[in-house]
Write a protein that binds this DNA or RNA. Structure first.
Lengths: 123, 123, 123, 123
DNA sequence: GTGGTCTAGACCACG
DNA sequence: GTGGTCTAGACCACT
């Protein structure tokens, strides 16, 4: 499949799945109207429980990211990318504020940005 | 007191306390050899249970951030700031990787960095 | 169950549990990948509180002895026996140093070793 | 002074003092009828609280290891060395049993005995 | 069902 | 006064 689950992380698996899907959408690898893998097949691919995937999909529906087509499956809804990006930018700002408070210099931060953006990418 | 607890956050209280203390140390508001508030008084100030604070302190001892002086209290250990900063830099890298995947441009990120570091600071 | 708790000992119960589990692993009665009893069931079997067992398990995870499978339980991690044996050898050295200081002869010590190893074994 | 206190140990300081004194007696560096340092001076030497030393002395009196001469101080009582040694031999046997259960070979144990007894001793 | 967190409150050990 | 441990019981999150 397209992303990995970290079974040792303290972050719940269903949240890892949700995040993974959001990132796939943001990065353009999943587009509006495309079908997602069935709950059953994704669960098998990731090696997790059916209910776990089901919950991730269900919550993404509630957030408006996915839509259910009964009897067919889940498709990517008509999401505004900016909305999703906003949540990432907020996260970034929070960490940056902590870095500033902690005395990490702006230069060092920009160095790190370079590392990440320069380096080969991707999840 | 010195920091706030978000009781609605999904992040456990004891972890919020750990993070808060690490940030206080990183920002220089808590220095090597200084005593932390007693478990009981911090618990009261934060409005949480004694055991919750105790767990945070205990784990910080295991991580080498604090030391126990038996019958006296907890003091800030002789920590290398770099070690603590590492934990923030890791958090930063994670968010940045997500931003990259999500298609947020490096320029936009640096713009945000500028906002945070330019603007007047601090938690 | 597999071991006994001495409620009168000055050694904390959660440490007795940790030690008991380490010894079960070292003696081969618990192997890599095997599940431990659930927190609740072990607590009931030992007649102690759930939190006490939980703490023992949690600390064993931090020491790399166990792993958590969320929603499933705790399993014995892929531990190097030597690592665990080290903790026993340290204990042995400490006692031996005291014996030496106390004027117990090396011959007497080896005699005792013979007694224990010769005699039919263990707990 | 004659022994060191490990302030980071989980073993209570007063127990470390008790053990230290017992070992001094067993090794012959403190003999029957000899005076121990006053509570006040030992506390200062060790850098611990008065009450801590007082408690150690008090318990050693209860165990028959020391005697109080009111107004003069504490002296080493008429102790049978064997009695004290017995408690060490018991401790040794316990650890050895664990070692055996854990699969540490008799050869390895004797090797360790050699290390400790061969090596320079003390403190 | 599993583990995880948290509370309220008790009691002990230490300095 | 300090920290340490433990209990009983609640509620939540995960699989």
């Amino acid at each position: 499949m397209w992303f990995r689950i970290d079974f040792h992380s303290s972050k719940p698996i269903y949240e890892q799945i949700k995040e993974g899907i959001k990132l796939l959408i943001l990065s353009g690898r999943l587009r509006e109207g495309e079908f997602l893998p069935s709950i059953r097949s994704l669960a098998e691919d990731l090696g997790v429980n059916l209910n776990t995937v089901a919950r991730a999909y269900r919550e993404l529906v509630m957030e408006g990211v996915l839509e259910v087509r009964r009897g067919e499956g889940y498709v990517v809804a008509d999401v505004r990318r900016e909305a999703l990006q906003g949540f990432l930018e907020d996260a970034l700002k929070n960490v940056l504020r902590d870095c500033k408070t902690a005395g990490i210099s702006e230069e060092r931060v920009i160095e790190i940005v370079g590392e990440v953006y320069g380096g080969e990418g991707g999840c």
